[in-house]
Design a binder for these strands. Structure first.
Lengths: 198, 198
DNA sequence: GTTGCCGAGTTGCTTTTTTAACCGGGTCAC
DNA sequence: GTGACCCGGTTAAAAAAGCAACTCGGCAAC
């Protein structure tokens, strides 16, 4: 697959994971504002400059999990099979995410994932930074969809739909329901929303 | 104690341990000659030059466990209390090693330790290199004991005694006896040998 | 006998990391 | 208000690690 990695690359990836995991676990335990980057660096056993070489800001220590999905929508559109509408490809992709309970769809009842979502959306600076990521995502999707205002409009609408769907799912799960229980409604909602997009 | 170590020192120590442990465990499993330094570097997840930065030769990958005791005899003599004969200090030190079943006294029946001794003494290049360590140790002890041929002679005799004692203990344990069982004889032998040194 | 390979070490160059010091904003004490 | 700290983030220099390519000796194929 993507295995022939050298020593250097492997260690970098491990360092990155160590920092990110240490950060998230500390944030979940004590709250975003009560944990300093020094604490995180110490927990991950790296120096402060190293930490910032991997993550440009404190917020990114949390949001890298979203950043991993950065540009995903654009990629889905670009790599869709011939004769398939962009919206259809995105719809299928979202449903696939739903089926495998991908956290980005909001349909995941794993306690850690729930706590993580709570952390992100109840911490202002994180929510704020997240919208910046979404803007870039929107830009990329617009590029993949074509040119002009039309493309931008459609990109914005698609992503808005996805955000609403994810948020809705998350609320249901925050109410105490299980992912499996919510799944049918989530699929129905998605089908409705994407259908209306066309 | 010796805790206030920086990040750098801590990681260096860990790397050193990782290399040394990987080497010894591979050697014990496959034999000294059937394991290449490349294998060890790979197992320890370091590059070959890094390995050689920590250990000058392949043999030292095994012998660092002895090297840790390098100059110990000299130190014991130098740090002995006032009014105490050097030989007495060394005698006490050896007996203390016996009591805590220090591997260097040969009085340790831990299977891994036994296998390790077997590895060292049945691999010619290792045994050879080990004598070089012992020579340096002898030199240091001679320095601590005074000047001239007298000091050298006494140093050589003391270390010879220690080697014989350790070897004897090891043989007994190699015969299947336990360290606790052998202990009284080992102490008696040591008392006899050190007494005769005076 | 020479060609090719393997294993122990080495060498130079680049990348990564640590260290310590710093900046600028915020906060709390006095 | 001002001085002392904490926090997010940066900088420069030096240590350490990785990589690739090398030497040198041994050994086996042909």
């Amino acid at each position: 697959m993507s295995e022939p990695t050298g020593l250097r690359a492997r260690k970098k990836e491990r360092t990155r994971d160590a920092i990110g995991d240490a950060a998230v676990s500390l944030f979940l335990e004590h709250g975003f504002d009560r944990v300093s980057v020094n604490d995180i660096a110490a927990a991950a056993e790296v120096s402060k400059p190293t930490l910032f070489r991997y993550f440009p800001t404190k917020e990114d220590l949390v949001l890298h999990r979203f950043a991993d999905h950065q540009g995903e929508a654009a990629r889905v559109v670009r790599e869709r099979g011939s004769g398939i509408e962009p919206v259809t490809a995105l719809h299928r992709h979202f449903r696939a995410g739903l089926d495998r309970h991908d956290p980005v769809t909001g349909l995941n009842d794993h306690p850690e994932v729930v706590a993580f979502h709570r952390l992100v959306f109840t911490t202002p600076s994180l929510a704020g930074r997240l919208t910046r990521y979404q803007l870039e995502d929107e830009e990329a999707l617009a590029d993949a969809l074509g040119e002009g205002v039309q493309a931008h409009l459609r990109a914005a609408q698609v992503l808005a739909v996805q955000r609403v769907l994810a948020r809705t799912n998350w609320h249901r799960i925050a109410d105490g329901r299980t992912a499996a229980d919510v799944h049918p409604e989530a699929v129905a909602d998605a089908d409705l929303a994407f259908h209306r997009l066309r």
